[in-house]
Design a protein around this nucleic acid. Structure first.
Lengths: 201, 201
DNA sequence: TTGATAATGTTAACAAAGTTAACATAAGAA
DNA sequence: TTCTTATGTTAACTTTGTTAACATTATCAA
């Protein structure tokens, strides 16, 4: 009878892995348990993925894609350059807060090595290209001098770093956003804070 | 004869765990292997630590302490306020780059839960207090208005976020510091970059 | 249709890890 | 000394990642 299993195991496994990661974090994500919960033999996942790292890579790739998509959408919506940088930053942090497990998977140590999973590397590169393009694409790009381009690049890195730092510290619980103000406004405030002013206003 | 082992197992284990973490990362740090490498029975660590998390907590605590110490030293050396913020930031990133494994242990997911290890929580709080004190301690603190204090706090968070983001992205390989310029200068540049200017200079 | 071949499942085994229980010895206090 | 506690040890148990060996299904050319 129903001795063997359906034909769509790969997708079902991935889906299940996704929800396990979301609900319990990577600790709860064991291959055997995943297989059991999917109703499939404990060795079945090896037919569809390159072991545990293979599954993590697949999940990470889809996370990168959602991440990039969100950033792209925001970048496309906001036209004014400065506004776009800020909007991107809040979207970046927003994704991290809404998907802390995926964000940590993408940037943390459990992420499989990029050089062993070319598609994962591509997904990562693509996501960061979105950031960089959106941040550096001042409207008049053609007539920029070399040094201006270098500065633009630096500004992209700086903007990225800020968003990343806020995201990390918030999902880590090190920074607790005040409950009485809007989260995006809080993030915006941190992003915009200018450290060069010697004294707090 | 030498059937049983020395009297100082706890320290030896900690020391060994420290070097394993530095050399191989937390992946290589298994209790059994640690015990074997220390020349002690595989269950011995349980007499001195609260399981694996216990050892990780101990290592994390000492890392936090070194981290805080470094920041404190820098903060004490540089007197001018703005310079101090920047010096702290570079020291922060510097620690991360010099001790990537420890930095990730301190902030990553393998860190044992703070609420289960009060000493760990204390060590963490202390480290961040150093940051915050150093960043917010403008010389004339007494006569600050409430809103000035709030701004100062925000600036501390902003400065912290930036340093943290740079640190994370660099040790993750996402940002590759250019080889042809001084690392500290590179970090300084990122820290000081003012995103509020609409166009790259 | 038939029959070879690849794809996909399964069960069974292995080594390594975290953890605990049961037991042995050392060190110190009474 | 003797009782108690701290510190070791060995031996088990469970879970996990992984692979090997075998079974079933799908695919597709002849």
């Amino acid at each position: 009878m129903a001795k063997y299993h359906h034909g769509d195991v790969r997708n079902v496994l991935l889906q299940k892995a996704e929800t396990i990661l979301t609900d319990e974090g990577p600790t709860g994500l064991s291959l055997r348990r995943l297989a059991r919960m999917t109703g499939v033999s404990e060795a079945a996942p090896y037919r569809h993925f390159d072991g545990k790292d293979g599954i993590l890579a697949a999940v990470a790739i889809s996370a990168f894609e959602r991440f990039a998509q969100k950033l792209e959408d925001v970048a496309a919506t906001v036209t004014k350059h400065e506004d776009r940088i800020m909007a991107l930053g809040t979207a970046y942090v927003g994704f991290a807060i809404e998907n802390p497990q995926h964000f940590r998977l993408i940037f943390g140590r459990e992420r499989p090595p990029l050089d062993q999973y070319p598609e994962l590397r591509d997904a990562a590169d693509n996501a960061f290209d979105v950031v960089q393009r959106a941040v550096t694409s001042v409207d008049r790009k053609a007539d920029m001098t070399l040094s201006q381009a270098a500065t633009a690049y630096n500004r992209a890195l700086a903007a990225w770093s800020r968003a990343h730092g806020i995201a990390m510290l918030v999902i880590d619980g090190m920074i607790v956003p005040p409950a009485d103000i809007n989260l995006d406004d809080f993030v915006l405030g941190l992003l915009a804070e200018d450290l060069n002013h010697p004294e707090p206003a």
